[in-house]
Design a protein around this nucleic acid. Structure first.
Lengths: 135, 135
DNA sequence: CTCCGTGCAAACCTTTTGCAGCCAC
DNA sequence: GTGGCTGCAAAAGGTTTGCACGGAG
């Protein structure tokens, strides 16, 4: 098999399946969901392999780890744009949006002067219009 | 003993000690650190009590839960202003700053229209000027 | 042939829960 | 006196690790 992306990772069936699932997953799958979906094709795939593969993918920049809630890690394919997620605590709907938060902070916060922001993640939750109406 | 704040919580020695530790803690203690510090005054205090007290304090708005890293919950005394944390991954230094992110998003993101943002937390990490120089 | 990758089981760590006794109100 | 609070121990849930085997390069 050909290598995964431009990485030095060995290309295996498990990795191909997992990467494809993440790609198709719309971006908000946790390890357990990935495992369950992957098992349909690879019934003997173990959860620890999923975790190890996710770790490797992350190290190699193929995917990014998100923390949409405080209990799980979620994974999505790496993208260029800085984007964030707004989650409805009523129905679980996820709204994605772009906002250069790091730039805004650098520009507006004197205390952040000279600080090199490497990682920026926003966790937002609230109620979407539909759920507000119900409440 | 007098009630804690204006809440309906029963006032106990354990709660007073824990609240005082959080107050003095500069705002970034996790449950285990709180437990260890509290034990100096209450050697028999159990970790589960710490968790239960934190839960109660949170429900009653006395403290807020933060997620400065993905592995632990951190706690700080509730404040009025929307403020966030910039963490140096080199030395662990925490820079606090105010920024009405929720307002910025509401104003700039059409997709967020009608969404009621209840909770907003930013996780930022990077390198402070000193650590940048060392690297 | 050599390592890296994998499955399995067990360990780990933070957080939660069940239960019996205790204390603030 | 009663219901909430506490300590202890055990469980839960997500994630990591040790080990021996197997497969990619």
């Amino acid at each position: 098999m050909t290598p995964l992306g431009n990485t030095e990772l060995k290309s295996t069936g498990q990795r191909a399946v997992i990467l494809e699932i993440i790609r198709r997953g719309g971006g908000h799958l946790d390890a357990d969901e990935i495992h369950q979906r992957a098992r349909k094709q690879l019934p003997r795939l173990s959860l620890s392999t999923v975790y190890r593969v996710l770790q490797k993918f992350k190290e190699n920049g193929l995917i990014e780890e998100r923390h949409l809630d405080e209990n799980h890690h979620h994974y999505e394919i790496s993208r260029r744009d800085e984007h964030h997620h707004l989650i409805c605590s009523g129905c679980g709907k996820v709204i994605e949006f772009s906002l250069p938060v790091a730039d805004i902070i650098t520009a507006r916060i004197p205390a952040a002067n000279g600080f090199e922001i490497k990682n920026c993640e926003i966790n937002l939750s609230g109620l979407c219009p539909e759920c507000r109406q119900k409440a």
